[in-house]
Write a protein that binds this DNA or RNA. Structure first.
Lengths: 112, 112
DNA sequence: GGTATACTGAACCATATGGTTCAGTATACG
DNA sequence: CGTATACTGAACCATATGGTTCAGTATACC
């Protein structure tokens, strides 16, 4: 079995790390180099590079090497599918609560 | 250092697995037992139980043992913080694109 | 050309993750 | 009481993850 990893997996996994979310927030304030990020998050260049690669793999960051510095920026992925999935989950939870409320409503006058 | 795991980590990590998302979708159609889920996802009871525990830890599912069967249902967590985080990310990406567009607009007439 | 800077890659390490098996325990039911 | 069912827990396993160090390579700058 080839066990293809679905995009939702990679995006959610990328977001499941504090440091990576931090990097994205940092990039929201403007582009940064690997060194910049390493300084900000007190981590080795190699460590930061791995995180950036994961973000890149998930489409949440893009990088471009200019001279000896690699510039990192946000995007291009907008997390549409992830948003949709979560919205559906929220609807399901709501629906469950609605059914519960309905049940309570129905049984309220039913007491013998 | 205690290295406390932030809630966003656990929620996103819980969502980063195909099987766990499948379980949540299944629960959206109605409560299910461990055995039900094991049959649906062709996995051992133990395997399913681990996934359910992770979902429970993330607040995405609740379970209650009645007799010998454990009933699993959705909720209570509504993923509000996760939604908020993603929305902020999306705003940042938009803002980045806006700045880029603005830059292109500004330089368009600037050609020597 | 020589030196400092910025990154890269391989190797390594500890721990986490996603799964299994197998031997229980607890409940239901004839 | 005996047996089937439903789950649980411990042990184990392979691989992934999140980090490091160290030895490069490539670019910038005097």
């Amino acid at each position: 079995m080839v066990q293809y990893t679905p995009p939702l997996d990679t995006a959610f996994a990328a977001l499941a790390d504090r440091t990576r979310r931090g990097i994205l927030e940092r990039l929201g304030c403007g582009d940064a180099s690997i060194s910049d990020l390493a300084a900000t998050f007190e981590m080795t260049l190699t460590g930061i590079k791995k995180h950036v690669q994961i973000l890149e793999g998930a489409g949440l960051a893009t990088t471009e090497k200019v001279g000896r510095v690699r510039h990192c920026r946000l995007g291009p992925h907008r997390l549409e599918d992830e948003t949709t999935w979560i919205a559906r989950y929220q609807e399901m939870v709501e629906a469950r609560l609605d059914r519960l409320g309905e049940f309570l409503e129905r049984t309220k006058g039913d007491q013998s």
